[in-house]
Design a protein around this nucleic acid. Structure first.
Lengths: 115, 115
DNA sequence: CAGGATCCTGGGCGATACTG
DNA sequence: CAGTATCGCCCAGGATCCTG
């Protein structure tokens, strides 16, 4: 990685939102979802956070927002091709995080070092 | 990735600190560094943030803290073997972030979609 | 030299109410 | 249905001063 880790910070700016990865997971496994469907798929999320996280992802061109001009309103969200390039990275992060959880609770891994 | 993205969140808990990736970069390219060396290597960081980020990384067993009981005090930090498993992930994040920056400023990538 | 103790600020996030 | 608009909390992060 580069000395200043600017890329790392840019990536974090995209994925570090509390609900971001779960939003992307659902859009990844469902191809496209409406606002209300996403809301129901994410127990605990408020409508404000869902809206702002979706706007943020849209700003970064990770997802696409399709508005159907009708009453009642209908909006669909899906991952863009560019957004799909993020999925392997999220996959890696998920795997490392789980492996890390295993590692840190493993007593045999404790390092004894003399001072 | 898993439905609940618990791994992603665990990873973020480790690497999302503002200075974390740069701390690891320097410990990766330098093998071991003293507190003051790290401080000088990271222009802009405060002593408080360096201390707390180092403590956090130590808690997760990403780095090791070696205290030499002498006056004046001497403390050395280095990456653990477990911490080294994080480096490929940071590398990926750095690459994706830079590529993403390219993508988002590329005008030809703008998607025109009818509403 | 390598921190500890305090105080402070911005923004991420949540709760609630309202709307085209 | 798919959002806006407010209000307020919490805490990561910064500034400053102090110490074994």
């Amino acid at each position: 990685m580069g000395k200043k880790c600017t890329g790392v910070e840019k990536t974090l700016a995209v994925v570090s939102g509390k609900w971001t990865s779960m939003i992307l997971y659902h859009l990844y496994t469902n191809e496209k979802l409406r606002f209300g469907e996403l809301r129901r798929a994410l127990p605990g999320i408020t409508q404000k956070m869902l809206t702002s996280d979706l706007r943020e992802l849209e700003k970064h061109r990770i997802i696409e927002r399709k508005v159907y001009p009708q009453v009642p309103p209908k909006v669909e969200y899906c991952i863009t091709d560019h957004g799909k390039t993020l999925l392997p990275l999220l996959e890696q992060m998920d795997e490392w995080g789980d492996a890390h959880a295993q590692q840190t609770l493993d007593p045999s891994a404790s390092t004894i070092h003399s001072i």
